[in-house]
Each structure stands twice: as C-alpha cells, then as structure tokens.
Amino acid sequence: MEVRVGVDLVHVPRLRRLLTEQPAIGGQLFTAGELRACADRRNTVSRLSARFAAKEAVLKALGTGLGPRMRWLDVEIVNEPWGRPVVRLHGEVAAAGARRGARTVDVSLSHTADFALAHAVVVMSGEPGPEEEG
C-alpha cells in the first residue's frame, strides 16, 4: 500500500475575477451540484475556490494533472450532511485512478476571504483496480 498526497492553494480574488469576466467557465469547472452547494452563500466564491483547490490537489495526488480527455468535472466534491467533503471521481479521472490502483481518495478544505486550501490523500493499493466511479 502506498499513500500519496497533493495540496493546492487558490487565490480567491483570481477565481472571482475569472467567474465575473467569463461566467460560462463556471460550468466547465464545477458540477451543477457543486454550484448549487455553494450558491447563495456569503462566501460563495471562497467555497468554490476551495473546491477548485480540491480538484487540483486530487489530480496532483493521483499524479496525473489534468491529462488528456480529463475534465474538471471529473473530480467532484460533495458534502456529507454534516459538512465533511467527499470526493467522487468520474470519467477519465476515475479511469486513470483505477489504472494506478487508487483505492481511497480523501480531501480536506479550508478557506478565508482571500485564500482557499485543499489537501488530498490517495491510498494506492499498488494493483490496478476496476475502472469504476466512486
């Protein structure tokens, strides 16, 4: 078994500027569920920034970056009822994770008005597994 980590820091005003200048980009970065979970909150962009950081951190931990055919939407951050973030992998990222033997993907998020941080941990079995979402 091998444990790999990834971390990412997002400057919240940078994402705010991007979403303001290029509103359509939100749909390329975040799933409908992520946008819904962060909408209508005082700190919407900080929360979205933390989720973007989480996507980057997961891709770093998997060692893939945003590779061919991968989409930001392939790494989805959802929240359990009590707020704990949970990672769901889809599409090419899920397939790449399975090929690398990723068994568990966990993430922790934090944000202020200016910065959002995410730390991802991936437990690899060392053996390629079935390519399934989850």
Partner: peptide, 27 residues
C-alpha cells in the same frame, strides 16, 4: 497556473473564435 490557462483559452476563444479546452492541451 491551471486556472490561468483556462482564462487564456477562454480569451482566445473570444478573440479568434477557436475553442480549445484545457484537456485539449494535454491531448
């Protein structure tokens, strides 16, 4: 940074009408 790449690609789409996604770069 990766977020900047998205911004750059969107700006090129607007100015030149050429659509390139971040994943296209890797491809």
């Amino acid at each position: 940074e990766s977020i900047d790449l998205l911004d750059i690609l969107f700006r090129l789409e607007r100015s030149l009408g050429v659509k390139i996604s971040a994943a296209d770069l890797g491809e």
